[in-house]
Amino acid sequence: MKTILTTGSNGLLGQKITEKILAEGRVKLIATSKGKNRYPIKSGYEYAEMDILNPNLVKKVVEKYKPDSIIHTAAMTNVDTAEADKELCHQLNVDAVQTLISLCEEKNIQLIHLSTDFVFDGADGPYKEEDAVNPLSYYGESKVLAEELLKNSKANWAILRTILVYGITNDMSRSNIVLWAKGALEKASPINVVNDQWRMPTLAEDLAEACILAVEKNAKGIYNVSGKDYMSIADLVRKVADYWGLDQSIITEISSESLNQTAKRPVRTGFVLDKTINDLGYAPHSFEEGLKIVDAQMKKVQSKK
């Protein structure tokens, strides 16, 4: 049985990987993150505190647990924060990747790296894996730089690019587009939503499954991993309203220009998923099915309170 070490295990994707591994027992898990373990179940796997900006500590943890594969989920993902603090973004999204690459080369460890649709400019989506990158933001640029490091390395690597990940954690602390939309609509105050950006939102469970499949199938190269439904952000919010029976009349559709965000966003991303479906056996849920899964989990969390 393979041993996987995850970085960023306290995040949404990190927690979903832990959940899946504990439920299915397909691999052994070493979960690592900055600070204390926030996953509610503490048995069935090992946890180590690990700040990915501390190369000596990363080396120590990797040498202690000797994983077959590392799934690197830790990153700065807030696009506007990345634009405002480029130095920290570079440390987290580029330098930390180089630390892991060096260790993986030296110790023959497979490295699964998470990337983003923001490596593209959005002029011509949906995209295939081999399409030319052209990031509009520093966040996207940092992810391109990390991808280049991997491509030029001697490591056994795979890059999983994803889009707009949604889902809930047990502590409900991490927001994302679906939770934001549901929460905002429930408050019944008017909300503005952009209608000129198109995406393929990704259920966190689907992305976690793709990460584990990439390990099991010893994936090499770049893979697109997203949901299968293509929609505008405004459509997405309306679908959330529909699912939970919330009032759509409070939604005002606006253009991206009127938001004055720090970082530019691509207009049309989305992915062609054929390679990932054929090579890895990836089978994403529909957006409707994803909302049903999130709803069931919310009810479970609330019933425990």
Rank of each mutant, 00 (worst) to 15 (best):
V225E: 01
L213R: 01
A204H: 00
N218E: 15
A219Q: 06
A123S: 15
S102L: 14
I250Y: 01
V27C: 10
S33A: 15
G140C: 07
E147V: 13
G125M: 01
T269K: 07
N218T: 13
N37I: 06
E19G: 03
Q91P: 08
D95R: 14
T202G: 03
P284T: 09
D124E: 14
A84H: 07
G270C: 06
D117I: 06
I41E: 12
I293A: 08
A283L: 13
K143M: 09
A158Q: 04
N93L: 02
L53S: 07
V165Q: 02
C104N: 08
K154S: 13
L5N: 02
A74N: 01
G44C: 07
V165G: 03
R161F: 11
K275W: 09
W157M: 08
D95K: 15
S258Y: 00
S175R: 15
I277T: 08
E147K: 11
P284E: 03
E148H: 13
P266C: 06
K305S: 14
L273W: 09
L236H: 04
C211I: 11
R199W: 10
I52D: 01
R268M: 12
L150W: 09
I159A: 05
A234P: 03
V165E: 03
G281M: 08
Q261H: 11
D171L: 10
G221V: 12
A146V: 14
A204L: 02
A210S: 05
V79F: 01
Y65G: 00
T99C: 08
T6M: 09
P135W: 05
G35M: 02
T269M: 10
I21Y: 00
S33L: 06
A184I: 02
G35D: 03
A219H: 04
P190G: 05
